[in-house]
Write a protein that binds this DNA or RNA. Structure first.
Length: 878
RNA sequence: GCCGGGGUGGCGGAACGGUAGACGCGGUGGUCUCAAACACCACUGGGGGCAACUUCGUGUGGGUUCGAAUCCCACCCCCGGCACCA
């Protein structure tokens, strides 16, 4: 007899029954509308799930459960992103294979997800490290390769000279390796890339077709970084060190190209800059006189030594060297000095710029430091001397030959046409987005299915030979030269290609983002061994209707997955052009974490203001040495609260209700275990209320309720029921889970009040029966264990998951008394209870009749009366 | 610097341009109890008042409106992201 919410008694019982009944198995029914609800593919870590992860999974679960009850075919799968560095590093340390370890972690995740009652269809689950899965990751790689969208080239990578390994950007903190603390160097190693840049425009355009948080869309647009401008040629003239008269042109050289978004300022160009890694650099050195050549070489060496991080630090003072060479501005034939400076990036645009210090902050800083001329060519208005650097585009050209006087936009247009007419350049759209570096010289990833033939060609491994399996290796550590551990395995490397010729296998593996770029397609048809998925099935489920996860994947994962989906669409493999129709980001769960002030001999990393300590340490230290901050829960901070402990203390449903209620879904929350008691009390009240309603319960209420015109308390009861059905359905749909729970709380409070006025009439009993069932069903997605327990307790069969979601009747939800606010000059003076549908005239009359209102109208002239039907009356007095 | 998202009681947060503070936490008082816990009931934004009431209140300053937490302009602060991208 559940007089109280007593989770220990029934939560695991229901979880066992759900499993027994295979309740969450996906039912594919093409006659029904479909709903695909998906959580981000988690990487299973040894620390297990925290309540922070639950904040992701529970809301998605509530939505999916409601959709299922509303009659949708629901796909709600979960699997594991198993490849990756953390597992590999752990494998290196423990000298054990990463696979069983990740498996163990994944199973622990699953245990915890089951513990909090999430309705995943585990029959569709897979690990991305399973050959049956990564076979198809390789297959997609080959399609990209065959389409010319996967290629290999020499590229600079982050090299850790102590650990002798290539590092991901995320593994570098302040120019040093996170693990070894070594200064990171740049190394040039052949790398595999995907040509995501080819899809740049579509990746921008199609953002308009998806329902995503505006912030995430904007981050993607910024990342892709489209800019419109002009690219044009500059000729190099070799001459003396000082410009001007007496300059002798020794030889004509190949031109270099520059890209600019401000062609309108081209008459203000007083120098140009090449990146130290510019392809023309060797030629420049040759052309320069000996002294300059020496300085250029020195500068290039210094630039090479700088870590990417240091180099990109915007606070750094600008550096550069003059080459002694000059380039010719095609617009006015003037010669401008060519400098080399690392503030120009080789990887963007052409790696060279025209520098206009009068109208660009960076060029201005450089010119001022090196004493280069600054010429204003844009003015905000006639006769106005622009304050330099003047970078806004609001203005007119000055000192610009025949273009003087034109507005910026107009000049850009005309100058672009001028370039195109003479074949010197063209208007161009430039993207900041770079190609996606996919290769890793690491063991624990999906092998790249390529064979290098003796003739130096690259061939995809024949489809019949896929998957290329990860071999077993002696050591998981990368080689001294940074090569993959796979390169040590002769049996793996030496192979034959499709024609039987000897060849060498590619030993790079793919970064984990490849695996997570298509898993949502595999969930549609997870065990197909003939193709990655059956297109018909994928077209039924795709796109994902609601995709839920943390905002930290705003760019990388989401951009890559979009790119692959578009490519797969182009290949005719799926109709969808976007993978995720709606995206939601949950807020983080923060933990109140102690820090201490650093001692005199300790220094803090940039951005830190204290040293992390444990609660025990905090208790021992003097109070003025300790301070607390709200920071994200993480294993390394030792501030994690696990669902296990909360479930043990308060129950899974209480945890679910609490997390839903505590704050709006996308907002960060400050974890406070005591507050869970609010959810416990609420569930207790629900159980008690069910007991109180039970004596009135008639299982057949549905058949009879419409035979009575409800009046009085019964009518009020039905009204509240139908209002709550409406509110909770809408709130769940729009991810307003906090107000959904609060609506349920209000409903429970009001049912309690109404029960005190219980009547022994059939209409009341029927209304109470409707309320009782609605209460249980509306609450079931949030508190599914309690829902099923109560459903059984009131004498019914089956699972709430398989029952029909209540529908609301607008006629029943309507109020028959309205509260009218009466204002005088916008200030509330009285409220009136009037029958619904009251006329404006009656409202005004009733309002004037109010003594409280009359007080404020006395002796004053009413100039205007504003009536909002059914809501408000406002008297405007002089 | 740029791009997003926010500033509402002691706290978490509600609120189609129309009664600010729903719902919950915490607090105060009470009921139950030998007692405590639980539970239940009442009160709980600030000032003034015995009270009816009144007045001030949604980061700051302006504006639009009969009426602004909500719309517009300027600014301040906090959080997240990007950061020499020409």
């Amino acid at each position: 007899m559940p007089e109280r919410y007593n989770p220990a008694e029934f939560e695991s019982k229901w979880q066992a029954r759900w499993k027994e009944a295979d309740l969450f198995k996906t039912v594919e029914d093409s006659d029904k509308p479909k709903f695909y609800g998906l959580d981000f593919f988690p990487y299973p870590s040894g620390a297990g799930l925290s309540v922070g992860h639950c904040r992701n999974y529970i809301p998605t679960d509530v939505l999916c459960r409601m959709k299922r009850m509303q009659g949708y075919s629901v796909l709600h799968p979960m699997g594991f992103d198993a490849f990756g560095l953390p597992a590999e590093n752990e494998a290196i340390t423990t000298k054990s294979h990463p696979e069983p370890m990740v498996h163990k972690y994944g199973l622990n995740y699953r245990r915890q997800m089951d513990l909090i009652g999430v309705s995943y269809d585990w029959s569709r689950s897979f690990w991305s490290s399973d050959p049956n899965y990564y076979k198809w990751t390789q297959w997609i790689f080959e399609q990209l390769f065959k389409s010319g969208l996967a290629y290999r080239r020499l590229a600079a990578v982050n090299w850790d000279p102590v650990d002798k390994t290539v590092l991901a950007d995320e593994e570098i903190v302040g120019g040093r390796a996170e693990r070894s603390g070594a200064l990171v160097e740049k190394r040039f190693i052949p790398q595999w890339f995907f040509k995501i840049t080819e899809y740049a425009q579509r990746l921008i355009d199609d953002l308009d077709t998806v329902d995503w948080p505006e912030g995430i869309k904007q981050q993607q647009r910024n990342w892709i970084g489209r800019s419109e401008g002009c690219q044009f040629q500059m000729e190099i003239a070799a001459g003396q060190d000082s410009p001007g008269e007496g300059l002798q042109i020794k030889e004509r050289t190949p031109v270099f190209e520059v890209f600019t978004t401000r062609i309108d300022t081209v008459f203000g160009m007083t120098f140009c800059v090449l990146a130290p890694e510019h392809p023309l650099m060797d030629q420049v050195v040759k052309m320069a006189c000996r002294e300059h050549a020496r300085r250029i070489e020195e500068y290039r060496e210094a630039a090479k030594r700088l870590s990417e991080n240091d180099r990109l630090a915007t606070t750094r003072e600008k550096t550069g060297v003059f080459t002694g060479l000059y380039a010719i501005n095609p617009f006015n034939k003037q010669q401008v000095p060519i400098w080399i400076a690392d503030y120009v990036l080789a990887t963007y645009g052409t790696g060279a710029i025209m520098a206009v210090p009068g109208h660009d902050d960076r060029d201005f800083e450089f010119a001022t430091k090196f004493g280069i001329d600054v010429v204003p060519v844009i003015s905000p208005g006639a006769g106005i001397e622009p304050p330099l650097p003047f970078v806004t585009k609001d203005g007119f050209l000055i000192n610009s030959g025949s273009y003087t006087g034109l507005a910026v936009a107009e000049a850009q247009e005309k100058l672009g046409i001028w370039l195109e007419d003479r074949g010197l350049g063209q208007r161009k759209i430039q993207y900041r987005l770079r190609d996606w570096l996919i290769s890793r010289q690491r063991y624990w990833g999906c092998p790249i299915p390529i064979i290098h033939t003796k003739d130096g060609e690259m061939e995809p491994v024949p489809e019949s030979q896929l998957p290329v399996l990860l071999p077993s290796v002696e050591s998981y550590a990368p080689g001294d030269d940074g090569s993959s551990p796979l390169a040590q395995v002769a049996e793996f490397v030496n192979c034959t290609d499709a024609d039987g010729r000897l060849g060498q296998r590619e030993t790079d593996t793919m970064g984990g983002f490849a695996c997570s770029s298509w898993y949502f397609l595999r969930f549609c048809d997870p065990f197909n061994d003939k193709q990655p998925w059956n297109p018909e099935i994928a077209n039924y489920w795709m796109p994902v209707d609601c995709y839920v996860g943390g905002a930290e994947h705003a760019v990388m994962h989401l951009l890559y997955a979009r790119f692959w989906t578009k490519f797969l669409h182009d290949q005719g493999l799926v109709k969808a052009t976007e993978p995720f129709q709606r995206l939601m980001n949950q807020g983080q769960v923060l933990s109140y974490t102690p820090f201490r002030k650093p001692r005199a001999d300790e220094k803090l990393d940039i951005g830190e203001d204290g040293i992390l300590i444990t609660k025990e340490e905090a208790a021992k230290l003097p109070k003025d040495q300790v301070f607390y901050k709200w920071v994200r829960m993480s294993k390394s901070r030792r501030n994690v609260v696990t669902p296990d402990e909360v479930v043990a203390e308060h129950g899974a449903d209480a945890l679910r209700v609490f997390l839903l209620f505590v704050a709006p879904f996308s907002q960060d929350v400050q974890w406070n275990t005591e507050s869970v008691t609010g959810a416990v009390r609420f569930l207790n009240r629900v159980f008690r209320l069910v007991d109180e309603l039970l004596p009135f319960y008639n299982r057949e209420w549905h058949a009879y309720i419409d035979m009575y015109e409800a009046t009085g308390v019964a009518k009020e009861l039905r009204r509240r029921t139908h209002q709550t059905i409406k509110k909770s359905s809408e709130d769940i749909e729009r991810f307003a889970f906090n107000t959904y729970i609060s609506a349920m709380m209000t409903y429970v409070n009001e049912l309690g009040d109404l029960l005190k006025k219980a009547e022994d009439t059939p209409e009341f009993k029927l209304a109470a029966s409707e309320a009782l069932e609605s209460l249980i069903l509306l609450l079931a997605p949030a508190a599914p264990h309690s829902g099923d327990e109560l459903w059984e307790y009131i004498g019914n069969q089956g699972f709430t998951f398989e029952l029909e979601w209540p529908t609301f009747d607008p006629a029943l939800a309507i109020e028959d008394v309205v509260t009218i606010a009466v204002q005088v000059n916008g200030k509330l003076r009285d409220t009136l209870e009037l029958p619904a549908g009251v006329t404006n005239e009656d409202i005004e009359a009733a309002a004037r009749a109010s003594s409280k209102v009359a007080q404020h109208l006395e002796g004053k002239e009413v100039r205007k009366v504003v009536i909002v039907p059914g809501k408000l009356a406002n008297f405007v007095v002089a």
